[in-house]
Amino acid sequence: MKNFLFVFSLLFTFSAFSQNEGKREAEFNLEKKIAIQGYDPVAYFKQGKAVKGKSELTATYEGVTYNFSMPANKEYFLKNPSKYEPQFGGWCAYAMGDSGEKVEINPQTFKIINEKLYLFYNAYFSNTLKSWNKDQANLKSKADSNWKKTIK
């Protein structure tokens, strides 16, 4: 009986993990299955700027694949992936807070807040980071709530 319960709990764990991976892959902002349009998530923190990653230098965390510009950044990511992942699945933070919509981003328009990466839409004379900065506390709270509803 113990063996049966062990095998059952193991299968249940893998099943739940697999469902979480599928949900993340379906809800995250991915381009050809790559997050942040191929930009290195660690570079935002370590280099202080958006740096394009290399397709031959990747890591996958819970179904979402990231590119890295250098091996050291990949190592940082592997040690603590949740620290470097963008908020709201890589969608525009402003749009997530304003309306709960998943809106594309410009990977070069970002902000680090409390050691978390936020990305923003910036095209056609519309830079949502500027609007975010005017009401950050309110928009962040709403975005957190909207994302929890999306990802559950």
Rank of each mutant, 00 (worst) to 15 (best):
M1A: 15
N3R: 14
F6V: 14
V7A: 14
F8N: 05
F8D: 06
L10C: 12
F12K: 07
F14R: 03
Q19Y: 07
N20Q: 15
E21M: 09
R24W: 06
E25C: 01
A26M: 10
E27M: 15
N29D: 12
N29Y: 12
E31F: 11
K33T: 11
A35I: 11
I36F: 11
I36G: 05
Y39H: 13
D40K: 04
D40V: 02
A43D: 03
A43P: 05
F45L: 09
K49Q: 15
V51A: 04
K52Y: 05
G53N: 10
K54T: 00
L57K: 02
T58C: 06
T58W: 00
A59H: 01
T60H: 01
V64C: 13
Y66E: 10
N67Q: 15
F68N: 02
A72C: 01
K74T: 00
Y76L: 12
Y76N: 14
F77T: 00
N80E: 14
Y84N: 07
Q87S: 08
G90Q: 09
G90T: 08
W91G: 03
Y94M: 03
M96N: 05
S99P: 05
E101S: 13
E101M: 09
V103K: 13
E104I: 01
N106F: 08
N106E: 15
P107L: 08
P107M: 12
T109G: 09
Y118L: 14
Y121G: 00
Y121L: 11
N122Y: 07
S126T: 11
S126P: 00
S126C: 01
N127G: 01
T128Q: 10
S131M: 13
W132Q: 03
D135W: 03
A137G: 03
S141V: 07
S141L: 10
A143F: 02
A143L: 10
D144S: 04
D144R: 02
K148L: 15
K148P: 05
K149C: 02
T150M: 11
I151M: 12
I151G: 08
K152M: 12
